[in-house]
């Protein structure tokens, strides 16, 4: 696909380990451009393969999520020659990570209630995603956006570069394990957050309930865990 003229990568929104995200205008719409860098430490063939795989995974999973009724930014354009993907810009949004920091900083009852709602909604959204056999591959609070509209908010899943489609409980449980560890390392002050998330995730339907059972198996598997009993 040809993107008319070189898009002006002016305001840089995010510089991650994998690439840069810029805010741009695309056919008159607010959009973001995500550009994956060439990783020169990797063998060029391996790098090309991985970059291509990840761009493809991202586009594919976003479409699958859309079909399942899960909010994600819409894909406008994919360009394998420049490793660029252009997506919808989610206005008035911040990462769940930032939102948690904000809410837990001014901890009062109202904010705790709000945090509970966020974790519950995360449980439902990720439950739905797993029910549709989409594995995210890098679930962290930085990869979920909260969009504020008036007094409401909505969650958007982003960063599907490591995602794939699989129906096994094992893969879904590992996905949850990655999220749990990310929460532990970043938001250890709200330790109940993951438990509340899990309750609502398990409550989504029978299939997610099974995954939660599998999770305890995955947890006990980390190397050199002290064995109890």
């Amino acid at each position: 696909m040809d993107v008319d003229a070189e898009p002006k990568p002016d305001p840089l929104i995010k510089q991650g380990a994998e690439g840069r995200v810029y805010r741009i205008q695309f056919l008159g719409k607010d959009a973001v451009l995500k550009e994956r860098f060439v990783k020169t430490y990797r063998h060029p063939e391996l790098d090309a393969r991985l970059t291509k795989e990840r761009i493809r995974a991202e586009a594919k999973s976003i479409v699958r999520c859309k079909n399942a009724g899960i909010c994600t930014p819409a894909v406008y354009s994919v360009d394998f020659s420049t490793n660029r993907i252009i997506m919808e810009y989610i206005s008035n949004s911040e990462t769940v990570s930032d939102y948690i920091y904000k809410l837990s900083d001014m901890s009062n009852e109202k904010h705790t209630e709000e945090l509970k709602n966020v974790s519950a909604e995360m449980g439902r959204v990720i439950g739905k995603m797993h029910h549709n056999n989409i594995i995210h591959g890098d679930l962290t609070t930085s990869n979920i956006l909260v969009q504020h509209i008036d007094n409401c908010w909505k969650l958007f899943l982003i960063d599907f570069g490591l995602s794939y489609t699989k129906s096994s409980d094992e893969d879904k449980a590992v996905d949850l394990y990655v999220l749990e560890r990310a929460l532990l390392s970043k938001h250890s002050d709200v330790s109940w957050f993951f438990d509340n998330f899990l309750t609502h995730y398990a409550g989504f339907n029978k299939s997610t309930e099974r995954v939660v059972k599998k999770l305890s198996e995955v947890r006990s598997r980390g190397r050199k865990r002290t064995m109890v009993g």
Binding site: H43, E45, L46, R49, L50, D138, L139, L162, V178, R181
Partner: peptide, 13 residues
């Protein structure tokens, strides 16, 4: 010559 091998990264694991 590079043989394509599985590349297994799960989050940070």
């Amino acid at each position: 010559k590079l043989l394509p091998l599985p590349y297994v990264v799960k989050g940070m694991d």
